[in-house]
Design a protein around this nucleic acid. Structure first.
Ligand code: ZN
Ligand code: ZN
Ligand code: ZN
Ligand code: ZN
Lengths: 129, 129
DNA sequence: CCGCGGATGGGAACCATTGTCAAATTGATG
DNA sequence: CATCAATTTGACAATGGTTCCCATCCGCGG
């Protein structure tokens, strides 16, 4: 049986933050932002809600070079990201050619249950003095 | 002043393991393999040597879904990987089109100091019953 | 063979993330 | 509105990969 998630203050607060952010942010950053807004939410709860949102594909997640998981509310549909290492600013990019290429390579070598990760990192204009 | 790394038994043992492996492996797996070979090496030392080899671009490193860093001695030159999630077996793949595409996208949006990550994960034929 | 400084290793420290569990909250029901 | 089961929360402990610390070791040039 599928259980609908409850509409708690904490869940709403996390969703609202993601709504307002335009770049990727870590769970801890989001936790801090919530605190500064006065809508304090336990760190575990922030993690849990981000995980849940990510599992239900409502938000995107990726890992940065430091091994942290970053979250962002993106448009629907499969895409990849051009992310600023300094400020998290993100441009969504579609690469249909890449998708097909990856799947073809995998099939060619007899791999199944295929997934791919593709992210582009750089420093955006605003963060380049 | 550039200091040449010393030729220690431990460094040689780690290099030898990488020489023999054909797939990606974690630091801990390599540590175990060394122990089973009788060429025991401290875990810290395994981490240090893998890091050093990775820094000097003598081996490749990537992170799996579990957040572990995996290492492999690959051919020289830029390439990406098709990796079996179950056994680590790896096929090196070149994607010149993807490289150019990624750089073009980044430039188009004013990003500098650009890098990209691209890995394909799947289950290889041997690991599919 | 000496001596210097890099290398080692065992254990502590780090740190993002997950687990625990009693207490609080939600939402359905009467 | 009151009741109550089930879900969610949050303070804290635990986890696990990785790095740090530092006394000791040892490769290597002289
Ligand atoms: Zn996205
Ligand atoms: Zn930026
Ligand atoms: Zn490689
Ligand atoms: Zn396999």
């Amino acid at each position: 049986m599928v259980t609908t998630p409850r509409n708690t203050r904490q869940r709403r607060a996390v969703a609202a933050i993601l709504e307002d952010l335009d770049g990727f942010a870590s769970a801890q950053e989001i936790h801090d932002l919530l605190r500064h807004r006065g809508e304090s939410v336990g760190l575990s709860t922030v993690y849990r809600n981000l995980q849940a949102l990510s599992d239900s594909a409502e938000i995107d997640a990726l890992r940065n070079d430091d091994g942290e998981t970053l979250y962002r509310q993106c448009s629907t549909g499969h895409h990849h990201h051009l992310v600023c290492r300094a400020c998290g600013r993100t441009v969504e990019v579609a690469g249909p050619t890449v998708e097909r290429w990856a799947d073809a390579i995998a099939a060619e070598h007899g791999f199944v249950d295929v997934a791919h990760t593709l992210e582009i990192f750089g420093t955006c204009g605003d963060c380049t003095p």
